[in-house]
Measured scan of single mutants.
Amino acid sequence: TGEEYIAVGDFTAQQVGDLTFKKGEILLVIEKKPDGWWIAKDAKGNEGLVPRTYLEPYS
């Protein structure tokens, strides 16, 4: 389980392990790392690192 967040901007993977997403996408945050990069999963089940500055809590 995780917390749902909504993307407030588009993000394109910079390196292997990053997750590309579009503004408005709902992501499930699995782990919040202290460096500001969180592990998240998208609706298709893809998992990767995302920058927390692009996310806001979804309710």
Rank of each mutant, 00 (worst) to 15 (best):
T1D: 14
T1A: 14
G2M: 13
G2T: 10
G2N: 09
E3A: 11
E3F: 10
E3V: 11
E3S: 12
E4N: 15
E4W: 15
E4Y: 15
Y5V: 03
Y5Q: 01
Y5F: 10
Y5G: 01
Y5M: 05
I6A: 04
I6C: 05
I6N: 02
I6P: 01
I6T: 05
A7S: 08
A7H: 00
A7T: 09
A7W: 01
A7Q: 01
V8C: 08
V8M: 15
V8F: 05
V8Q: 07
G9N: 14
G9F: 15
G9H: 15
G9M: 15
D10L: 02
D10T: 08
D10C: 06
F11Q: 03
F11T: 02
T12E: 12
T12M: 11
T12D: 13
A13F: 03
A13C: 05
A13K: 06
A13M: 07
A13R: 07
A13W: 04
Q14C: 14
Q14K: 13
Q14L: 11
Q14Y: 10
Q14P: 06
Q15T: 14
Q15Y: 10
Q15S: 14
Q15I: 11
V16C: 08
V16A: 13
V16M: 12
V16F: 13
V16E: 11
V16H: 13
G17Y: 07
G17H: 07
G17C: 06
G17M: 06
G17F: 06
D18Y: 15
D18A: 15
D18N: 13
D18F: 15
L19E: 00
L19D: 00
L19G: 01
L19P: 01
T20R: 04
T20G: 11
T20Y: 04
F21R: 00
F21T: 02
F21L: 05
F21S: 01
K22T: 09
K22I: 06
K22V: 09
K23T: 09
G24Q: 03
G24S: 04
G24A: 04
E25Q: 14
E25S: 11
E25K: 02
I26N: 02
I26L: 09
I26T: 05
I26W: 06
L27D: 00
L27T: 01
L27E: 00
L27Q: 01
L27V: 07
L27I: 07
L28E: 06
L28M: 12
V29L: 05
V29E: 00
V29M: 02
I30M: 12
I30N: 03
I30L: 14
I30R: 06
I30G: 03
E31K: 11
E31R: 07
E31P: 01
E31M: 11
K32G: 02
K32V: 05
K33R: 14
K33F: 10
P34H: 12
P34F: 11
P34W: 10
P34T: 15
P34Q: 13
P34R: 06
P34E: 15
D35S: 11
D35N: 12
D35I: 04
G36P: 04
G36T: 04
G36H: 06
G36C: 07
G36Y: 05
G36V: 04
W37M: 10
W37G: 04
W38H: 02
W38F: 05
W38K: 00
W38A: 02
W38P: 00
I39Q: 07
I39G: 03
I39M: 14
I39E: 03
A40R: 00
A40G: 04
A40D: 00
A40P: 00
K41E: 04
K41P: 00
K41G: 03
K41Y: 10
K41Q: 09
D42I: 02
D42K: 05
A43Q: 13
A43E: 10
K44W: 15
K44T: 10
K44E: 11
K44H: 13
K44R: 14
G45A: 05
G45M: 07
G45T: 02
G45F: 04
G45V: 01
G45R: 04
G45H: 05
N46M: 11
N46Q: 11
N46T: 10
E47D: 06
E47A: 09
E47R: 09
G48D: 00
G48H: 02
G48T: 01
G48A: 02
L49V: 13
L49S: 13
V50I: 05
V50H: 00
V50Y: 01
P51W: 14
P51E: 07
P51S: 09
P51M: 10
R52S: 12
R52V: 09
T53I: 13
T53C: 12
T53G: 09
T53W: 14
T53V: 14
T53P: 06
T53H: 12
Y54I: 08
Y54N: 06
L55I: 12
L55V: 07
L55R: 00
L55W: 01
L55H: 00
E56P: 01
E56Q: 13
P57Y: 08
P57L: 12
P57F: 09
P57N: 06
P57W: 07
Y58R: 09
Y58Q: 06
Y58C: 08
Y58M: 11
Y58S: 07
Y58T: 07
S59F: 10
S59T: 15
